[in-house]
Design a protein around this nucleic acid. Structure first.
Length: 427
RNA sequence: GCUGAGGUCGCUCAAUCAGGUAGAGCACUGGUCUCGAAAACCAGCGGGCUUGUCCCAUGGGGGUUCAAAUCCCCUCCUCAGCGCCA
């Protein structure tokens, strides 16, 4: 959510931002918002004046009663005004709801370094790291390899749960856990606090954290309860400090979340959905940061470096793209996607790193202050970046490190977490 | 899940029984004083807008009333005891 004051004072700034985002419908929304805002302010002032009158009459009633004088006349007048206020309040609250929903629909202001573009095809590649091994055979898709090694059972998973679920088996489970342990140890050394969040969130948290579009498409709701399965630990961690004021000297707060992620949407048109790439459930270690406004851009780069150091330690070939204005999503001011090389020669997303500036914090009401006892100075900034999502990291490992005999080489850094297993192979 | 007690400014509490329009202390900020600091004193210290002798704000939502922290209903959370259970 943007600051309504900023929109009032600098509407052209917001407008230019929407133009950059190539969002004509949002431009309309902005016009509507500005209109409603004027009406709301008028109505507010009008109501305030009526309330003032009523308050004055109320005081007079109290005075008369104390003096044992009849207050009938005053009461009649007050009742009239009261009825009028009631009517106007209804209108006002309708305006408020409208204004809020318009305001929520206005996306975050983009950082100047975000490339302008229509869609994901215009994301700008910043760098590549590593290279795929020379395959002296035709590399296979990860599912084929895993099925040969009997490390997954997706048919039976479909039977018990449906499409989009898998049974992981034996060493693949160990690999999944190893990736998580590796990421936690890595981030812990970098000063992150390890967090296992609630895997369900309530309505208020959902409204504060989940983009309405994502919600419709991706979120599971618990039947008969206002509870939702998290689609990422970010949802729970972001709301951890909702309505709180953090002391400046305790910032930044850096969290490493470990959780399963539950997502409804997997079959969107034209999306790559093979095997483990999109499933209803996967495990992920997530970096989440609360910080002062002046440090967020530096931390954005730090978070990116953390992820890349992990991919490099695993030996994975990847590239980083600066996500363009048409593909960035409404919450982020800037976003890097990291994409890993797959056996079909394409790069696909393995992680996503966003600086949300104060956009999330304003909605969640998370502020900071110079020190204890002082009034809050402003809203903090939030950032989130995938550390390692196990399913996609496993795909990368399997497809990039597959051998001619169908075995998979386990990256050295993961071996200690897997009882020293060096290869996943047929037994 | 049941019973009880609670939720008021950053913190600790008051006003609740009996409705009359939210107050104190601490902390913090600025000023006076001082070489400087402490103490003392003065002022400020939740949000809004059209900056007023204005409006809103007592976990959240509704109701009664001229008027609600206070009375009624719903709901969330915390603590204690009991019950149930990996």
């Amino acid at each position: 959510m943007l600051d309504i004051k900023l929109i009032r004072e600098k509407p052209t700034l917001v407008k230019d931002n929407l133009k950059k985002r190539n969002a004509p419908d949002k431009l309309k929304l902005l016009e509507q918002l500005l209109k409603v805002d004027v009406t709301w302010r008028k109505a507010q002032t009008e109501i305030n004046k009526l309330r003032q009158k009523r308050n004055q009459l109320s005081i007079e009633v109290a005075k008369s009663k104390k003096a044992n004088k009849p207050a009938k006349k005053i009461l009649a007048g007050a009742k009239k005004i009261d009825a009028l206020i009631g009517k106007k309040e209804k209108i006002l609250s309708e305006l408020e709801i409208k204004e809020k929903s318009f305001l929520m629909g206005i996306p975050n202001l983009l950082h100047e370094s975000v490339p302008v573009g229509k869609d994901e095809n215009e994301n700008v590649e910043l760098r590549k790291w590593g290279s795929p091994q020379k395959f002296y055979f035709t590399p296979k898709n990860h599912m084929e390899i895993l099925e040969n090694l009997k490390l997954v059972d997706s048919e039976r998973a479909a039977k018990v749960a449906g499409a989009g679920f898998v049974f992981l088996k034996n060493e693949l489970v160990l690999l999944d856990l190893a990736i998580q342990r590796f990421a936690l140890d890595f981030l812990s050394k970098k000063g992150f606090v390890i967090i296992e969040p609630p895997f369900m969130i309530n309505k208020k948290t959902r409204e504060g954290m989940v983009d309405p579009v994502d919600f419709e498409m991706a979120t599971y709701k618990i039947e008969n309860e206002e509870m939702y399965l998290i689609a990422t630990s970010e949802h729970a961690m972001g709301a951890m400090f909702a309505d709180e004021i953090l002391d400046k000297n305790n910032l930044p707060v850096k969290l490493a979340g470990i959780s399963p992620c539950f997502r409804k949407e997997i079959g969107a048109h034209g999306k790559y959905t093979k095997g483990l790439f999109r499933t209803h459930q996967f495990n992920k270690i997530e970096q989440f940061v609360f910080c002062l406004p002046e440090e967020s851009w530096r931390l954005h780069e730090d978070l990116q470096r953390n992820s890349e150091e992990m991919y490099q330690a695993l030996g994975l070939h990847y590239r980083v793209v600066n996500v363009c204005t048409g593909d960035i999503g409404s919450i982020a001011a800037k976003k890097y996607d990291t994409e890993f090389w797959m056996a079909d020669g394409k790069f696909r997303e393995i992680g996503s790193n966003s600086n949300c500036t104060d956009y999330q914090a304003r909605r969640l009401n998370i502020r900071f202050r110079e020190k204890q006892g002082q009034a809050p100075t402003g809203f903090i900034h939030t950032l989130n970046n995938t550390a390692l999502a196990t399913s996609r990291t496993m795909i990368a490992i399997i497809e990039q490190f597959q051998q001619k005999d169908g075995a998979i080489l386990v990256p050295k850094v993961l071996q200690p977490y897997m009882n020293g297993i060096e290869r996943l192979e047929m037994k």
